[in-house]
Amino acid sequence: MPAEDEAARRSTVGRLLADELGTQRRLALAQGRAVMDAVVEDRVARAVVDALFGTGSLERLLADTTIENICVNGCDVVWVRDDTGSWRRESPVVASDAELVELVRTLAARRIVSDTRPVTAITANSREPSGSCRFRRGMPRSKRRSRH
């Protein structure tokens, strides 16, 4: 049997997720517990899909086409710069510095690409124990000088 292509794998994961979430709903009802809210179910499903096919919790930032730079300094400090040049702090993308190191290794191995604009640079500061890294989107900007 040939290996599934990406679309088939995504379809299989979607089906398995729907089955499991349905099982969890039935179990909760049978045991008299509250069922998971639909919004929470969607977040759980998105987290699983992002972990399997995307970039884990970093996916939400990479999917935002207005973000040009993502700076992760340790597990709990995340800054992004949008296409207007404004910087803002974001919630953490990993729970520990060890997870950040593993995320960077995984992303480098996958040579990550978003649906709309590729990530053109991942830089990691190995001198920092926390393992800071920066993700840059699009083409590097350069200042043009006029020649007179």
Rank of each mutant, 00 (worst) to 15 (best):
M1E: 15
A3C: 04
A3E: 14
E6C: 02
A8Q: 15
A8P: 00
S11W: 06
S11F: 07
T12M: 05
R15E: 11
R15D: 06
L16R: 14
L16S: 07
G22N: 13
T23I: 12
T23L: 14
Q24S: 13
R25I: 12
R26L: 12
A30W: 01
Q31K: 13
A34H: 02
A34L: 12
A34T: 08
V35T: 12
M36K: 09
M36S: 08
D37M: 07
D37C: 09
E41N: 08
D42W: 06
D42V: 00
D42N: 11
D42M: 07
A45K: 10
R46F: 05
A47N: 04
V48F: 02
V49W: 01
D50T: 06
D50L: 07
A51D: 14
F53S: 04
F53W: 07
G54I: 07
T55V: 09
G56N: 05
E59F: 02
E59T: 15
L62H: 03
D64G: 01
I67T: 04
I67M: 01
I67C: 01
E68P: 00
E68A: 06
N69F: 09
N69S: 09
I70F: 02
C71S: 11
C71Y: 09
C71A: 13
C71T: 10
V72K: 05
V72E: 01
N73C: 12
G74N: 02
C75M: 03
V78D: 03
V78Y: 06
V80L: 03
V80F: 00
D82E: 10
D83V: 06
D83H: 13
D83T: 11
T84M: 05
G85I: 02
W87S: 07
R89P: 03
E90R: 15
E90A: 14
P92G: 06
V93D: 01
V93M: 05
S96Y: 01
S96M: 03
D97C: 08
A98T: 13
E99V: 03
L100G: 08
L100S: 02
R105T: 12
R105G: 10
T106E: 04
A108H: 08
R110A: 12
R111K: 14
R111L: 11
I112P: 13
V113P: 03
V113D: 14
S114H: 10
D115Q: 13
R117H: 13
V119N: 06
T120L: 01
A121R: 15
I122M: 07
T123P: 00
T123Q: 05
T123V: 09
P129R: 11
P129E: 09
G131Y: 00
C133K: 00
R136V: 01
R137D: 02
R137Y: 09
M139D: 11
P140K: 06
P140V: 10
P140F: 04
P140A: 11
K143E: 11
R145T: 10
S146N: 13
R147P: 01
R147V: 11
